[in-house]
Simulated scan of single mutants.
Amino acid sequence: MADRPVSRVVVARHGEALYESELLSDAGGWLSPLGREQAAGLGELLAAEVITRVWTSDMSRAVQTGEIVAARLGVDVVVRTGVREFGVGAAAGTTGVPDPFAETFAAWVSGDLAARIPGGESGDEVVARWSGVLEAIADEHEGESALLVSHGGVMSMVLPLLATNLDPGHARDRPIPNCGHAVLERGAAGWVVRSWLGDRLDP
């Protein structure tokens, strides 16, 4: 493990999306014109990163973002279900007001990963599926850089829990905007976030 090459993974949120309905669902949505501009901008920003592959969740707003970035970088795209947004559970078909996830999300950030979205996933289940894909990406890209396009809620919850240098509530003060990104590196000591929304962080 001590001699394992560092894997560098840029984790980005998808671009601004439009949806068929304003009601909550697990549907994928699609990029708005602004979202396409944001994705193109992300591709330009990452041109100096030497990204070797783009990975995305299977939700269409993430896939479309990844395809736009990959076209700019000249690399291929791989889709993985495990890094999709956490499911809405029993809140499907509601307006989402008040926020039906606030209590569960607060419990997750406080360390209670057994807490479950009614009719949906527990924190343990979300972390397991999302981190499993991240580890697989890191294994495949040892000594390289890759891009993972995912979703704001799951990124805000999981990344601070995985990183050795972030407080679990880090994203509360630094929420991730559309096409905002964090740079992670996995080395012998585990995962470290090198930058969050462009600001460098201490290991």
Rank of each mutant, 00 (worst) to 15 (best):
R8K: 13
R8I: 08
V9Y: 06
V9S: 06
V9L: 13
V10I: 15
V10P: 15
V11H: 08
V11S: 05
V11M: 06
A12W: 02
A12D: 07
H14T: 08
G15A: 00
G15S: 01
G15Y: 00
G15M: 01
E16G: 00
E16I: 02
E16S: 00
A17Q: 06
A17Y: 01
L18K: 03
L18H: 06
L18C: 04
Y19G: 01
E20N: 09
E20G: 12
E22M: 11
E22I: 08
E22Q: 14
L23K: 14
L23G: 12
L23M: 13
L23F: 15
L24F: 12
L24M: 11
L24Q: 11
L24V: 10
S25C: 10
S25L: 10
S25I: 14
D26A: 12
A27R: 12
A27L: 14
G28W: 05
G28E: 04
G29Q: 04
G29R: 02
G29D: 05
W30M: 07
L31Q: 05
L31F: 02
S32R: 05
S32G: 01
S32T: 10
S32I: 02
P33M: 05
P33L: 02
L34G: 03
L34T: 10
L34C: 06
L34I: 06
G35W: 05
G35R: 07
R36Y: 00
E37P: 01
E37R: 15
E37C: 07
Q38K: 07
A39F: 02
A39S: 07
A39R: 00
A39P: 04
A39K: 03
G41M: 05
G41Q: 07
G41L: 08
L42K: 06
L42W: 06
G43F: 03
E44I: 11
E44K: 12
E44W: 10
L45D: 14
L45V: 10
L45C: 14
L45S: 15
L45H: 15
L46S: 11
L46D: 14
L46I: 09
L46T: 10
L46M: 14
A47I: 09
A47K: 12
A48F: 12
A48W: 13
A48L: 13
E49T: 03
E49R: 10
V50K: 13
V50P: 11
V50W: 01
V50E: 14
I51S: 07
T52I: 09
T52C: 09
T52W: 05
T52Q: 08
R53C: 07
R53K: 08
R53I: 05
R53V: 09
V54R: 04
V54S: 04
V54H: 04
W55D: 02
W55V: 12
W55A: 02
T56C: 00
T56I: 04
T56Y: 01
S57P: 10
S57L: 08
S57E: 02
